[in-house]
Amino acid sequence: MCLSMPAKVIEIDEQRRTAKVDYLGSQLQVGIELLEKVETGQFVLVHAGEAIQLINEEEAIQSIRYWKELTQG
């Protein structure tokens, strides 16, 4: 019900509380008012033009590693 994409922050406009984010090579202007804080280079989850969460990259990597290891187990 809530199409969202993980995108990388490449530019922040603190004034307007927006950021330019990149998803697979295309850039979108999104709001960042729903985030406590965010820095360029971080990943955010984008829904309907707003960043709704700062993505936990550590978790992203760990999870996939977990599943990879499982196939080898």
């Binding site: 993980p6 729903l34 985030l35 406590e36 989850l45 709704i52 969460q53 993505i55 936990n56 990259e57 978790e59 992203a60 760990q62 999870s63």
Partner: peptide
């Protein structure tokens, strides 16, 4: 929680307060 990269225990607290 099989979506830990995006879902926290308390979710997005700022969004909830808004």
């Amino acid at each position: 929680n099989n979506y830990t990269r995006n879902v926290k225990e308390a979710g997005n607290e700022k969004a909830k307060s808004i």
